[in-house]
Protein backbone atom coordinates (compact mmCIF):
# COMPACT_ATOMS: atom_id res chain seq x y z
CA UNK A 1 0.00 0.00 0.00
CA UNK A 2 2.91 2.23 0.66
CA UNK A 3 3.95 2.17 -2.96
CA UNK A 4 0.44 3.16 -4.02
CA UNK A 5 0.54 6.21 -1.77
CA UNK A 6 3.84 7.12 -3.35
CA UNK A 7 2.35 6.77 -6.81
CA UNK A 8 -0.53 9.04 -5.85
CA UNK A 9 1.95 11.54 -4.51
CA UNK A 10 3.89 11.49 -7.75
CA UNK A 11 0.74 11.88 -9.80
CA UNK A 12 -0.36 14.79 -7.66
CA UNK A 13 2.97 16.47 -8.11
CA UNK A 14 2.71 16.49 -11.89
CA UNK A 15 -1.03 16.94 -11.94
CA UNK A 16 -1.23 19.90 -9.62
CA UNK A 17 2.14 21.47 -8.94
CA UNK A 18 3.55 21.13 -12.46
CA UNK A 19 0.31 22.27 -14.09
CA UNK A 20 -0.80 18.93 -15.53
CA UNK A 21 -4.37 19.83 -14.66
CA UNK A 22 -4.46 22.54 -17.32
CA UNK A 23 -3.88 19.82 -19.90
CA UNK A 24 -6.60 17.73 -18.33
CA UNK A 25 -8.98 20.68 -18.45
CA UNK A 26 -8.13 21.34 -22.09
CA UNK A 27 -8.63 17.67 -22.80
CA UNK A 28 -11.95 17.72 -21.01
CA UNK A 29 -13.01 20.78 -22.95
CA UNK A 30 -12.02 19.22 -26.26
CA UNK A 31 -13.79 15.98 -25.39
CA UNK A 32 -16.88 17.99 -24.66
CA UNK A 33 -16.61 20.15 -27.78
CA UNK A 34 -16.23 17.15 -30.03
CA UNK A 35 -19.08 15.22 -28.46
CA UNK A 36 -21.48 18.18 -28.44
CA UNK A 37 -20.61 19.27 -31.98
CA UNK A 38 -20.85 15.65 -33.07
CA UNK A 39 -24.29 15.26 -31.56
CA UNK A 40 -25.63 18.55 -32.97
CA UNK A 41 -24.34 17.86 -36.48
CA UNK A 42 -25.51 14.27 -36.08
CA UNK A 43 -29.05 15.29 -35.14
CA UNK A 44 -29.30 17.69 -38.08
CA UNK A 45 -27.97 15.18 -40.60
CA UNK A 46 -29.83 12.30 -38.99
CA UNK A 47 -33.16 14.14 -39.07
CA UNK A 48 -32.75 15.03 -42.73
CA UNK A 49 -31.82 11.47 -43.67
CA UNK A 50 -34.67 10.01 -41.61
CA UNK A 51 -37.25 12.32 -43.19
CA UNK A 52 -35.99 11.38 -46.64
CA UNK A 53 -36.13 7.71 -45.68
CA UNK A 54 -39.76 7.87 -44.57
CA UNK A 55 -41.03 10.24 -47.28
CA UNK A 56 -43.19 8.80 -50.07
CA UNK A 57 -41.11 7.59 -52.99
CA UNK A 58 -43.28 7.93 -56.06
CA UNK A 59 -41.34 10.91 -57.35
CA UNK A 60 -37.84 10.64 -58.67
CA UNK A 61 -36.05 13.15 -56.44
CA UNK A 62 -36.80 11.44 -53.10
CA UNK A 63 -35.76 8.12 -54.62
CA UNK A 64 -32.36 9.46 -55.68
CA UNK A 65 -31.87 11.23 -52.36
CA UNK A 66 -32.78 8.04 -50.56
CA UNK A 67 -30.18 6.10 -52.54
CA UNK A 68 -27.51 8.65 -51.59
CA UNK A 69 -28.54 8.54 -47.94
CA UNK A 70 -28.33 4.77 -47.89
CA UNK A 71 -24.80 4.89 -49.27
CA UNK A 72 -23.89 7.47 -46.65
CA UNK A 73 -25.29 5.40 -43.80
CA UNK A 74 -23.66 2.30 -45.23
CA UNK A 75 -20.24 3.91 -45.23
CA UNK A 76 -20.40 5.49 -41.81
CA UNK A 77 -21.86 2.48 -40.10
CA UNK A 78 -19.72 0.04 -42.00
CA UNK A 79 -16.30 1.31 -40.99
CA UNK A 80 -14.72 2.03 -37.61
CA UNK A 81 -14.64 5.66 -36.57
CA UNK A 82 -10.84 5.55 -36.28
CA UNK A 83 -10.64 4.61 -39.95
CA UNK A 84 -12.98 7.44 -40.91
CA UNK A 85 -10.96 9.88 -38.87
CA UNK A 86 -7.72 8.78 -40.49
CA UNK A 87 -9.26 8.85 -43.95
CA UNK A 88 -10.53 12.37 -43.45
CA UNK A 89 -7.41 13.74 -41.90
CA UNK A 90 -4.73 12.04 -43.99
CA UNK A 91 -6.53 11.43 -47.30
CA UNK A 92 -9.42 13.78 -47.91
CA UNK A 93 -8.03 16.97 -46.39
CA UNK A 94 -4.68 16.89 -48.24
CA UNK A 95 -6.58 16.09 -51.45
CA UNK A 96 -8.60 19.27 -51.08
CA UNK A 97 -5.64 21.16 -49.69
CA UNK A 98 -7.71 22.21 -46.73
CA UNK A 99 -6.07 23.28 -43.48
CA UNK A 100 -8.47 22.28 -40.79
CA UNK A 101 -7.26 21.86 -37.26
CA UNK A 102 -7.34 18.34 -35.87
CA UNK A 103 -10.02 19.44 -33.43
CA UNK A 104 -12.42 20.68 -36.10
CA UNK A 105 -11.80 17.59 -38.23
CA UNK A 106 -12.75 15.49 -35.23
CA UNK A 107 -15.94 17.50 -34.70
CA UNK A 108 -16.85 17.05 -38.35
CA UNK A 109 -16.13 13.32 -38.49
CA UNK A 110 -17.92 12.66 -35.21
CA UNK A 111 -20.89 14.59 -36.56
CA UNK A 112 -20.96 12.73 -39.86
CA UNK A 113 -20.59 9.43 -38.09
CA UNK A 114 -23.26 10.04 -35.51
CA UNK A 115 -25.52 11.38 -38.28
CA UNK A 116 -25.64 7.87 -39.68
CA UNK A 117 -26.64 6.39 -36.32
CA UNK A 118 -29.03 9.19 -35.40
CA UNK A 119 -30.79 8.77 -38.75
CA UNK A 120 -31.72 5.22 -37.82
CA UNK A 121 -32.79 6.27 -34.33
CA UNK A 122 -34.81 9.13 -35.80
CA UNK A 123 -36.43 6.91 -38.41
CA UNK A 124 -37.64 4.59 -35.69
CA UNK A 125 -38.90 7.59 -33.74
CA UNK A 126 -40.80 9.01 -36.71
CA UNK A 127 -42.33 5.65 -37.51
CA UNK A 128 -43.46 5.25 -33.92
CA UNK A 129 -45.62 8.37 -34.23
CA UNK A 130 -49.25 7.53 -34.99
CA UNK A 131 -49.81 8.00 -38.76
CA UNK A 132 -53.09 9.71 -37.87
CA UNK A 133 -51.08 12.74 -36.73
CA UNK A 134 -49.65 13.20 -40.20
CA UNK A 135 -53.05 12.61 -41.79
CA UNK A 136 -54.70 15.20 -39.59
CA UNK A 137 -52.08 17.79 -40.44
CA UNK A 138 -52.32 17.02 -44.16
CA UNK A 139 -56.12 17.15 -44.01
CA UNK A 140 -55.84 20.71 -42.66
CA UNK A 141 -53.93 21.67 -45.79
CA UNK A 142 -50.39 21.71 -44.42
CA UNK A 143 -47.73 20.38 -46.76
CA UNK A 144 -45.84 17.15 -46.12
CA UNK A 145 -42.72 18.95 -44.91
CA UNK A 146 -44.56 21.38 -42.66
CA UNK A 147 -46.59 18.55 -41.12
CA UNK A 148 -43.39 16.63 -40.59
CA UNK A 149 -41.58 19.51 -38.91
CA UNK A 150 -44.44 20.93 -36.84
CA UNK A 151 -46.25 17.78 -35.77
CA UNK A 152 -44.41 14.51 -36.40
CA UNK A 153 -40.75 15.31 -35.69
CA UNK A 154 -41.41 17.01 -32.32
CA UNK A 155 -43.23 13.89 -31.17
CA UNK A 156 -40.55 11.64 -32.61
CA UNK A 157 -37.82 13.58 -30.80
CA UNK A 158 -39.63 13.12 -27.54
CA UNK A 159 -39.76 9.38 -28.09
CA UNK A 160 -36.06 9.10 -28.85
CA UNK A 161 -34.53 11.38 -26.18
CA UNK A 162 -33.30 8.41 -24.10
CA UNK A 163 -31.70 6.80 -27.15
CA UNK A 164 -30.15 10.11 -28.19
CA UNK A 165 -28.71 10.44 -24.70
CA UNK A 166 -27.15 7.05 -25.21
CA UNK A 167 -25.67 8.21 -28.51
CA UNK A 168 -24.16 11.23 -26.74
CA UNK A 169 -22.58 8.97 -24.15
CA UNK A 170 -21.11 6.81 -26.91
CA UNK A 171 -19.69 9.95 -28.53
CA UNK A 172 -18.11 11.11 -25.26
CA UNK A 173 -16.39 7.79 -24.84
CA UNK A 174 -15.35 7.52 -28.48
CA UNK A 175 -13.49 10.84 -28.22
CA UNK A 176 -10.60 8.86 -26.73
CA UNK A 177 -9.57 8.03 -30.31
CA UNK A 178 -8.93 11.59 -31.44
CA UNK A 179 -5.26 11.40 -30.50
CA UNK A 180 -4.85 9.40 -33.74
CA UNK A 181 -4.92 12.68 -35.64
CA UNK A 182 -3.21 14.72 -32.98
CA UNK A 183 -6.11 16.36 -31.24
CA UNK A 184 -5.76 16.46 -27.49
CA UNK A 185 -8.39 15.02 -25.25
CA UNK A 186 -8.54 13.42 -21.82
CA UNK A 187 -6.51 10.42 -22.90
CA UNK A 188 -3.70 12.61 -24.26
CA UNK A 189 -3.62 14.68 -21.09
CA UNK A 190 -3.35 11.69 -18.80
CA UNK A 191 -0.81 9.82 -20.84
CA UNK A 192 1.28 13.01 -20.74
CA UNK A 193 1.14 12.92 -16.98
CA UNK A 194 1.89 9.22 -17.03
CA UNK A 195 4.94 9.54 -19.22
CA UNK A 196 6.27 12.35 -17.05
CA UNK A 197 6.14 10.26 -13.92
CA UNK A 198 6.94 6.90 -15.58
CA UNK A 199 3.88 5.71 -13.77
CA UNK A 200 0.57 5.03 -15.48
CA UNK A 201 -1.53 3.38 -12.82
CA UNK A 202 -2.95 6.42 -11.07
CA UNK A 203 -3.41 8.69 -14.13
CA UNK A 204 -5.41 6.07 -15.99
CA UNK A 205 -7.42 5.27 -12.89
CA UNK A 206 -8.31 8.95 -12.52
CA UNK A 207 -9.09 9.11 -16.23
CA UNK A 208 -11.52 6.21 -15.91
CA UNK A 209 -13.16 7.90 -12.95
CA UNK A 210 -13.58 11.15 -14.85
CA UNK A 211 -15.23 9.35 -17.75
CA UNK A 212 -17.60 7.54 -15.42
CA UNK A 213 -18.58 10.71 -13.58
CA UNK A 214 -19.03 12.55 -16.87
CA UNK A 215 -21.33 9.87 -18.22
CA UNK A 216 -23.30 9.75 -14.98
CA UNK A 217 -23.86 13.52 -15.15
CA UNK A 218 -25.03 13.28 -18.75
CA UNK A 219 -27.39 10.44 -17.93
CA UNK A 220 -28.90 12.63 -15.22
CA UNK A 221 -29.33 15.58 -17.57
CA UNK A 222 -30.96 13.36 -20.18
CA UNK A 223 -33.40 12.12 -17.59
CA UNK A 224 -34.29 15.69 -16.64
CA UNK A 225 -34.83 16.71 -20.26
CA UNK A 226 -36.97 13.64 -20.79
CA UNK A 227 -39.13 14.48 -17.82
CA UNK A 228 -39.70 18.06 -18.92
CA UNK A 229 -40.62 16.94 -22.45
CA UNK A 230 -43.15 14.48 -21.10
CA UNK A 231 -45.34 17.27 -19.86
CA UNK A 232 -47.82 16.79 -22.72
CA UNK A 233 -48.31 13.18 -21.67
CA UNK A 234 -49.04 13.81 -18.04
CA UNK A 235 -52.52 14.41 -16.83
CA UNK A 236 -52.91 18.19 -16.33
Amino acid sequence: MGSFAKKVEKFWEVFYEHGGYTRVLTGLRNTFYIAVAGLVIGIIIGTIIAIIAVSPKYKRLPRILNRICRLYVGFFRGSPMVVQLLLFYFVLLPLFGSRMTPLSVCMLVFGLNSGAYVSEIMRGGIMSVDPGQMEAARALGLSYWVSMLKVVVPQAVKNIIPTLGNEFIVLIKETSIVSFVGASDLYVAFSYIGSNTYEFMVPYLVMALIYIVLVAIIALIVKMIERSLRKSDRRN
Binding site: G132, Q133, V151, K158
Partner: peptide
Protein backbone atom coordinates in the same frame (compact mmCIF):
# COMPACT_ATOMS: atom_id res chain seq x y z
CA UNK B 1 -59.36 8.45 -33.76
CA UNK B 2 -59.64 12.27 -33.31
CA UNK B 3 -55.97 12.78 -34.21
CA UNK B 4 -55.42 15.86 -32.12
CA UNK B 5 -51.75 16.82 -32.21
CA UNK B 6 -50.32 15.31 -29.03
CA UNK B 7 -47.41 17.73 -28.84
CA UNK B 8 -49.63 20.81 -28.83
Amino acid sequence: QFNLFNNK
